[in-house]
């Protein structure tokens, strides 16, 4: 940097620019589509629904209306329990822009019982360093009057006290 030759007018400038802001912003409208709308409207009623593929029999949640493997509509709707197994997790220790959670917190992939794809949500009511794969967890919902068509209607998942799930039960989802 020292070998750069500057014109006179730049030589004595106090605090030369060394950093610039280059923000990127996407402002758009999200259309949930039929399947995810059904899912979110059920969430507003404190229910979790998935959809089963008629070919491979896998149950997807949140449903997208089609099986990504078989390419067929997933029209059979399945009412799901509010309990599942942690298949993977991340302890967040780093502050970032737009963050609302207190540090540290745990974001996890949770395989609801009877489903074949995990859902991402928060794990609370347990120290971050005790969260582990196979941990059995249950959904904690917001008060009924605050329910809405959003996954934020589930405040978080917490350990439900059951023994850890056998690895075989979630090995396809890690």
């Amino acid at each position: 940097m020292s070998d750069i030759v500057l014109p006179d007018r730049l030589r004595d400038v106090a605090e030369p620019v060394r950093r610039i802001r280059t923000p990127a912003r996407l402002d758009y409208v999200f259309m949930a589509g039929k399947a995810t709308s059904r899912f979110l409207n059920a969430v507003a009623e404190k229910r979790l629904v998935g959809q089963r593929c008629p070919v491979c029999r896998k149950v997807y949640v949140p449903p997208r209306g089609v099986c990504p493997t078989d390419g067929v509509p997933t029209e059979e709707e399945i009412e799901l329990p509010h309990v599942g197994t942690v298949t993977s997790f991340c302890v967040v220790n780093v502050q970032f822009y737009g963050q609302v959670m207190e540090l540290p917190y745990v974001s996890a992939l949770i395989l609801l019982d009877g489903t074949d794809i995990p859902l991402m949500h928060l794990i609370q009511e347990v120290p971050a360093d005790q969260v582990h794969m196979g941990m059995r967890v249950e959904a904690v919902w917001v008060p009924d009057e605050e329910l809405g068509p959003t996954l934020e209607s589930i405040k978080y998942f917490r350990p439900n006290g059951e023994p850890d799930a056998d690895y075989e039960t979630y090995k396809d989802n890690v």
Partner: peptide, 11 residues
């Protein structure tokens, strides 16, 4: 059908 505004911003 549900529709929601969405903004993604990277500072």
């Amino acid at each position: 059908l549900l529709v929601a505004p969405n903004v993604i911003e990277y500072p």
